[in-house]
Design a protein around this nucleic acid. Structure first.
Lengths: 192, 192
DNA sequence: AAATTACGTTGACATTTGTCAATGAAAACG
DNA sequence: CGTTTTCATTGACAAATGTCAACGTAATTT
């Protein structure tokens, strides 16, 4: 249990066995069936979720009713509505499972206590959020500087497993395109 | 000197006088004239810059030669090519001054030493990067869910000072629009 | 195994945005 | 103060993307 969680944690910040045992007392396992919600907009995000197994997506609903996916998460990844988690404000995003999934949850109070007790946890957080920030920055830059074809080609190269496990219309949503436009972009790539 | 820097720092993480004096030994002041580069793409970003006075922009060059502004910074804000700073890789972005500016620089080695010596610095970083991440996430979501008119209206409400101090074509660039499209969006807003 | 649902592709057409160029006003420069 | 540069707006036209609908295939459900 929590194998992958600690493997990923240790990749960023090495833990002693005692530290791992301590952190374990703050973790909660959770299973989700495909299509089951982890979080609905308007509720407060009570936990940060780490994916031990499975696949999830985080999305908001645009004014026209369309879903806009802001993030995917597969094994080894973390997912939450971070603003809601940190502030206790109602969540903007929905999170649901695209495949049957097994998660490791860390609650707000556990998060706060670990911040007090374990400096390594703060380092881990800083590194996690920094990585997430840099990925988002790169993504926003590419939206404004690259064509859909270039962006899709980059995406399949960077995240081949996401392309395999999520339907194409979700990839399109994540890229801010309609399924039709992505289909046309893929056609253009093939003809080159 | 460094007044605003420590005011902002203390808003996030309160420092003792001794701690402030210690941090001061790691800071370097720098002045920039309008249009002067702080960082050019291809160079390594050697410092994180805090703005004591003035205004800067960070931008990349798209394949078609257009500038795409990813970030502005005015008094109290921080600016850098963070990936380049952390990894020593060549910078993707350019940073230059839109107004004559006074900065407070923190070098990579100072950053690393402060991380070792002062746990409060790590907390400050975590909080800084978390805020930056949340702002970027919100921005990317709005790109895909709101019209240019709505986005501009939000932007002027959230950042009135940016709208006053940066020319409109730079605001357009930051929004991922051409100046013409932003002008049309503003006309639409006025006719409502 | 049959029925149903989900998915990806495609084309016609509508809408939005970018490109180009011109104009006038404001700001900056000498 | 005169000259030059920068900026914002506008319109015509081109290009890109969204919307709608239909179709065939694959996956899921019954």
């Amino acid at each position: 249990m929590y194998e992958l969680f600690f493997r990923k944690f240790n990749e960023k910040v090495p833990l002693t066995h005692e530290e791992e045992e301590m952190i374990k007392t703050y973790l909660t396992p959770k299973k989700l069936r495909r299509k089951q919600y982890l979080l609905q907009e308007g509720d407060v995000c009570k936990s940060i979720a780490f994916v031990e197994k499975g696949a999830l997506r985080e999305y908001s609903i645009a004014e026209n009713g369309n879903e806009q996916i802001i993030q995917f998460a597969i094994e080894g990844w973390t997912i939450s509505d971070l603003y809601s988690f940190l502030t206790g404000e109602p969540a903007t995003y929905n999170i649901d499972a695209v495949e049957d999934s097994e998660l490791v949850l860390l609650s707000k109070s556990a998060h706060e206590e670990l911040l007090r007790k374990l400096p390594k946890y703060e380092t881990y957080l800083r590194l996690q959020v920094t990585g997430a920030y840099l990925a988002l920055q790169k993504r926003l830059t590419s939206v404004n500087t690259l064509s859909p074809e270039e962006r899709y080609a980059n995406f399949t190269q960077l995240y081949p497993e996401l392309v395999q496990r999520f339907p194409q219309h979700m990839i399109a949503s994540h890229m801010g395109l309609t399924p039709e436009t992505l289909s046309r972009a893929r056609r253009k790539i093939k003809s080159k």
